[in-house]
């Protein structure tokens, strides 16, 4: 990494100016961006499986985040913006929306890929940011039935990512008799190593419907 390099690849912002070929965004729009750009016209993109444009796949940070990265700055240029950004709904705070562009989507990916889905179970190893997002996504989809910390003491704590609304309703945690974690206590400020087990019918129910139904939405938009 070079001295003076601008870091970061997760951001929200207000559109200052839009290029002539950007039809989806205009000045003043509040947007969140994906951490990579995709062309939107290749075979994979048309199938709804968006991949970084060629040249971005090199895993050196410099290349990966070349566009639209370097975002911890006052201004960022987002290439291929129509396929990289989403409007933030009115009333949603920047802090809520920002993780959609990378780690929340990455956590969500766990629910959509992998053979674990066939059995409706999976495992998150490590409670770092992506691990927390994966657990949150699974919880939002009502897939978590058992959460256990393998190392250290079991912590009964309020899960920091659940909204007040979902905590007031019976969660999967409290419904499960085998659950050893109750939503109580304070939010952790420190990421700790944890093993999170998913088990439940949700994954099984979800699978037969349409495997890539979420992907399809974006695909339709891309074909427009």
């Amino acid at each position: 990494m070079n001295q003076g390099a601008v870091l970061g690849h997760e951001f929200v912002g207000v559109v200052e100016d839009a290029g002539s070929r950007s039809s989806d965004s205009s000045r003043g729009d509040r947007v969140v961006s994906s951490f990579f750009t995709s062309c939107g016209v290749c075979t994979l993109c048309r199938k709804g499986w968006f991949q970084p444009v060629r040249g971005q796949v090199d895993l050196r940070p410099r290349r990966v985040f070349r566009e639209p990265g370097w975002c911890q700055a006052e201004y960022v240029v987002v290439p291929l913006a129509d396929h990289s950004m989403e409007l933030i709904p009115n009333g949603m705070s920047d802090e809520q929306a920002i993780f959609v562009g990378d780690i929340l989507a990455t956590g969500f990916l766990r629910r959509r890929t992998g053979r674990d889905q066939a059995r409706g179970r999976g495992r998150v190893v490590g409670a770092g940011p992506v691990g927390l997002m994966a657990t949150m996504a699974a919880q939002a989809l009502r897939a978590v039935s058992r959460v256990r910390r393998r190392h250290g003491r079991l912590a009964a704590r309020r899960w920091p990512w659940t909204s007040a609304a979902s905590q007031s309703t019976p969660s999967t945690f409290t419904r499960s008799r085998r659950s050893r974690v109750r939503p109580a206590g304070s939010a952790p400020t420190r990421a700790s190593s944890a093993w999170v087990f998913f088990r439940g019918r949700h994954g099984d129910r979800e699978r037969p419907r349409r495997r890539h139904h979420l992907d399809g939405r974006r695909s339709e938009r891309g074909d427009r």
Partner: peptide, 19 residues
Amino acid sequence: CNVQAYMRPLLDLIAAGRL
């Protein structure tokens, strides 16, 4: 991660208060 495909549904989930 297929971020571009997930952003809109995730924003919907956040707006609905589920995330």
